[in-house]
Design a protein around this nucleic acid. Structure first.
Lengths: 132, 132
DNA sequence: GCTTGACTTAGAGTGTGCTCTAACTTCTAG
DNA sequence: CTAGAAGTTAGAGCACACTCTAAGTCAAGC
């Protein structure tokens, strides 16, 4: 059940490079991964799940420092559920604000596109009148 | 009508630092700004408008390189409306995708928060049963 | 047994987008 | 007139998040 995956396989699954996977482990975003007798990493499916959640935090703009704090919290205080929840709630709020700002800016870009389209239309109409 | 603003005033209006404003000019995101006889910059309201649009592109994740390309297009080919529109349409698409990804990840974070809340509730219920 | 390719480490290097420094000039208020 | 605040430049420095290098070890197929 608990598949043991190589770093290369995990890289393919998660979309992170082996370099980045090792880097995340060094930064303590990931707990020390199991090793074979020869020192090669073998990832469990739980590890994959954790890495996948990490990448969600990352791609919602959470800095490495904060991810570190959360990772340490999860590993060292597994029973501090409320603290974890609060941490995620805070992040959720920043993500919501991020989305809102993006939508505002998107609206302005939309408006500009409309504006250009209108100018283009006007231009071609003028063309018609100018060349009877 | 055309107010002439100092770099400090523009910094306050736009939220960019004077350093960043000079940097943007060096990178050709901004056309060379008018100068007083002594060489100090004086920004026009049109300059402000342009800078404000730039910051929208920036905060929707457009890299400086692309902003450069767009700026040069606007300045050097003021009549290439269709090209500008296409450029913005392309960017609009990437912003939409960005928002979508954020919303997906937000949903997962939401789910986790719910999950923690449920565990917390369960814990306190157990507490009730354990201490009659 | 040997080759080829994947894995290991510590540490250096890279790209992006600012951000600051130093040395100097200029403006402004008293 | 002068102090000090604000402006100028070229270029150096910084924070972040990777990304790569070098030198070596290990594993799998022939």
């Amino acid at each position: 059940m608990e598949k043991e995956l190589t770093i290369q396989q995990v890289a393919e699954i998660t979309g992170l490079s082996p370099h980045t996977l090792r880097y995340y482990e060094r930064c303590q975003l990931i707990a020390p991964i199991e090793r074979t007798s020869s020192g090669h990493r073998r990832y469990s499916t739980d590890d994959i799940r954790w890495i996948e959640f990490l990448t969600r935090l990352r791609s919602t703009g959470m800095p490495i420092r904060q991810m570190q704090a959360y990772s340490v919290l999860v590993r060292q205080h597994p029973k501090a559920l409320e603290q974890r929840r609060r941490f995620l709630e805070t992040h959720r709020q920043t993500v919501r604000e991020q989305i809102e700002r993006l939508q505002e800016n998107l609206a302005v870009i939309d408006w500009k596109i409309q504006h250009y389209a209108a100018l283009e239309a006007q231009e071609s109409t003028n063309g018609l009148f100018e060349a009877p």
